[in-house]
């Protein structure tokens, strides 16, 4: 019985949301709009649970490892500082929270992100190797795009240009090859991926809606 109710909620919700897109029934549109609002409200409560788990983990660390207590303490203090300041002063422009956001979150987030530049260069050195046929193809097409996207590619194309019988041919034209790769094979495989992924999404959605995939329900 308990399971049946949950399955019915999934089924009815799923069917209404699916039909809403196709059918011209005003009631469905109204439900759709409200469901989106409901989801936001429900997520708000879920967030409390999430924050609880975040803090619980920090407090746990606090007890056991006394020397390293500074790390969980940092999270706890910074979290409550931001929340309390935000509740008192708001989060608009020129508030303390905005100041913290601009001076901690923005620069540090960008710095974490920039670690990628280092990782990608070492990945290029370590993993971009012609081990077999397919990795050779990957390597060649990647290298073409790497050169084709910088002015050096234009320069190479310019100095290797030949004029034969009035027609202009560039022997080594990385930008043109890059353009071809992006517009032809890339479009083809991306489209195939889009089709496949969308069908996967539809099939998973249908399985969820009809209660075939219900691991979460036990």
């Amino acid at each position: 019985m308990k399971e049946l109710i949950a399955l019915l909620i999934v089924l009815i919700g799923g069917v209404i949301m699916t039909l809403q897109y196709f059918l011209n029934i005003p009631v469905l549109d109204l439900i759709y709009k409200n469901v989106l609002d409901w989801s936001i409200v429900i997520s708000t409560f879920a967030l409390l649970l999430a924050i609880r788990s975040l803090l619980a983990r920090q407090f746990q660390d606090l007890k056991f490892k006394k020397v390293k207590s500074i790390f969980p303490l940092t999270t706890i203090i910074s979290f409550f500082t931001v929340v309390i300041l935000g509740l008192i002063f708001g989060i608009g422009e020129k508030t303390p929270v905005d100041f913290i956001y601009q001076n901690i979150q923005v620069p540090l987030q960008a710095t974490v992100f920039s670690l990628l530049a280092f990782y990608i260069s070492s990945a290029a050195y370590r993993a971009f190797r012609a081990k077999n046929f397919s990795s050779t193809v990957l390597l060649i097409s990647g290298s073409i795009v790497i050169i084709g996207r910088i002015p050096l590619g234009d320069f190479i194309a310019k100095i290797t240009t030949l004029h034969i019988n009035g027609s202009v041919i560039s022997l080594i034209d990385f930008p043109a090859w890059t353009k071809w790769i992006l517009n032809v094979p890339n479009v083809g495989i991306k489209r195939a991926f889009i089709f496949g992924i969308t069908l996967g999404i539809i099939s998973t959605s249908l399985k969820v809606i009809f209660g075939i995939e219900r691991g979460w329900l036990k």
Binding site: L139, G142, V145, I189
Partner: peptide, 8 residues
Amino acid sequence: IGFGASFG
């Protein structure tokens, strides 16, 4: 070819 292009 496509992945190489994405990577580059």
